[in-house]
Design a protein around this nucleic acid. Sequence first.
RNA 1: GGGCGGAUAGCUCAGUUGGGAGAGCGCUGCCCUUACAAGGCAGAGGUCACAGGUUCGAUCCCUGUUCCGCCUACCA
Length: 913
Amino acid sequence: MTTPQLDKTYDPKAVESRWYRVWIEQGYFRASIDHPGEPYCIVIPPPNVTGSLHVGHALNHSLQDILIRWRRMQGRNTLWLPGTDHAGIATQNVVEKQLITEGLSRDALGRERFVERVWQWKATSGNTIVNQQKQLGESCDWDRLRFTMDEGLSKAVLEVFVRLHDEGLIYRGERLINWCPRCLTALSDIEVEHEDVKGKLYTIEYPLENDPGTKLTIATTRPETMLGDTAVAVHPEDDRFKHLIGKRVSLPLTNRTIPIVGDAILVDREFGTGAVKITPAHDFNDYEAGERHQLPRLPIFDHQALLDPAGMAKAGVEPNIATPLEHLPVQKARLKIEQALKDRGLLMKVEDHKMAVGKCYRCKTVVEPYLSPQWFVRIQPLADPAIKAVEEGRIRIIPEGWVNNYLGWMRDIKDWCISRQIWWGHQIPAWYCLTCNDRQILSVGNRTTVLQGAKPIVSKSDPAQCPICGGRQFLRDPDVLDTWFSSALWPFSTLGWPDRTPELKTYYPTSTLVTGLDILFFWVARMIMMGLKFMGDVPFRDVYIHALVRDAEGQKMSKSKGNVIDPLHVMEQFGTDALRFTLASMASPGRDIKLAEERIEGYRNFANKIWNAARFALMYLNGPRAALPPAQRAFPDRWILSRLNHTIRAVTSELESYRFDRAATVLYQFIWHEYCDWYLELIKPVLQDSAHPDGPSARQSLAETLETTMRLLHPFMPFITEEIWQTLPHRGDSIVVQDYPVVDSAWSSPDTEQQFMLLEHTVGLVRTGRVLLNVAPGQRIPFYVGHDDQTRHRQLHQLQHHLAHLSRGTAEVKPSNDWPSGKLLRLVTEGLSVGIGVTGDVDLGKALDRLAKQIAEADKEAQRLDTKLNNAEFVAKAPPEVIAEHQERVRTLSRDRALLASSQEQLRAMLGT
RNA sequence: GGGCGGAUAGCUCAGUUGGGAGAGCGCUGCCCUUACAAGGCAGAGGUCACAGGUUCGAUCCCUGUUCCGCCUACCA
């Protein structure tokens, strides 16, 4: 038999694309409802269709692939369902920017042609991220790739919208909503990011209508909104002001007077002046206060957040004030208002003030509360079951710490604004009869607005006839749905819902959702609500929430900071397996990942180490192999089988609890520091002697353990493990579809492990001695070993030839008091003694320093233990086994110390000091 | 303002029934020893943030403080 030869260093590029192609060709990732195993399904958090893979995706996807590959190998009926979402606002923004560079605009193009352009863009760039995912080795069932705007998923959206509307859970109404004046659309509450900024607090005087000499002083951070004030509020129990309630003030800069109202909710007596202006059209609190006091709402900004002439006219703003303000943005208007108030002596003071402003999560523009008719989901009835599902443990959130976060948000949830004033997305299935809604449909330029009070016909298909007037002319609601509305249906819409498909029956509820914290509310919470509502069951059993990836300094990665780590570049440079292993090993719960390239390089080295272990194995695997029962194998084989068994148990249980970091650490330690450092070294003498009687069993153990280790590692490092596995003796076509290793009690051998620890300590001591005495690495030396404990001493005899081999010398096992008295460096630890001959002209400085240090440490430790043992309370109250252990340690220490001291004296004697 | 998490070796982080403090990277010294210099061997380095409390005994449990993150919120 000829053995395949491997190159000296591992070259990821040479193997990755090759194996991925094979895996796809063989259909290993394809799921089938006929598979006999218990289903295990993950739906991918769909990335933006026009995006590209960033390191956050790489983490998220690596973890999912580890789970899926692991479960597939365990024989489960696995489905990892991939897909992308249409990312309404973001994608529309991208295409609009393209149009600008062509001198076009979406308005110039018109809705239909614009949407066509977006589809074109999706067609050209939509595969980018999918190809990058393949590069990462993701074992998705690509035949089932879904997109939120697919026909099937769109059907699901229609179905859900219409059913929720019919049940009264979707309604249209005019409310104050978050409005992005740049994207020109409504946003939901959670699409607004709050950011602390340094602002100013303006104190302004409003004169009383019937007593202009008396003034009510208010404080505001947004003086420009005063033009739309419709009341001033004071606390009803505030003795300073309560007599003013019911009176009116003249609103400066306008011809209006507005009432003073008492409002205990809005007003905090301690803050500012104790009096607050109320602008219901431009502030959420004021909007609610306005409801309480039946105040009019006077918007003074237009949809671009510019001062609106018509609005100002309606608000009675003095013409000489209004004219210069027309079409000014908020910031500029503020300066003019400030000046006007100053001119009239009404501006008392301006102070620095810390405040939070809301920004659009897509474009970072400051959002404005804006009064407009929108569609909402009445969320409370959906939230209640979603709260219960988590409370009752039907859904587990991991790590648990996020449960309260989830519950807190769900219990305080607000109605969800789902309409967006953009064109890319699922258009709302609502139509307005042109006859019946004549007065509610308003066209200004190319903007069509359907006013509050219009009567929509909600239906899965175009209505033929108005049920009220019989009219046949309709306007379809121009708005589209929030992208997250379709994402919320993802776990069942991707499986064929609303049709009752066998896939749905097999894979729903899905098993695990892997996601970042940033979309817990955007996505996870909404999937839970929709899943419970429409499937009558939770969408997934486990939600695993992983950390955010930051740069080495802990900064959030962003293109503008230039600190992004590009996963594609990393894969190119260090290999995909290295990247995947790095991310897995750093995925500790509840902590952000600070990623530095050196870490990835370290795991590239790990891959190379594995590669070379395989090269070593292949070099010696020629020749007959014999599979003896584990107990009859040689010491190194018994030991590595026992350790491998332990590693299988640990990796499996860590994966079961989503501790990817610990699973990775366990694998790393085993492969590098047990398998390579010790096992391969231990078996070299047997392998290198082709006539050795233990050869057949050693070769069998070597092949068997390496092959098993590759299977154990495969979910983490799919490419290198496949490449190596193929060169080893194996059964089957691909590691992808082999069984995951399971614990085998016949492999477990605690006695052998004990013995190995003795070997490890002894070899360590000899090697230390060699360094202390400056013995050349290649030089073979004679040395003595002995142990105070009889059993250990006997074991040293059994280990003799291993000791000699690993210590590069000849070992004589003999009680230490039988050793020659002079010219010997003795090193001692825990009853174990090693003696190395000292030749005349060696520098003993290092050795003496070491002995002195050991003695000092022994003294210190002995003193610490003595103190404890002399404490009557310790002796009286500590468990007997703890006391016994302490006493034993004191005895060992004192023996060790005595031996070290005598060695010290002997060396000193040699030096003649 | 509220909530949550973190503070352990130079750096990044493990450490689950409280009883001798760990890994990776980096650093120092010696080695191109026929799997691997992307390597081997040996080694240095830590009042486990601070102050109290519980306990015979605390990195671990409790309280408070400081600093740093994140989430959330209507303080004009």
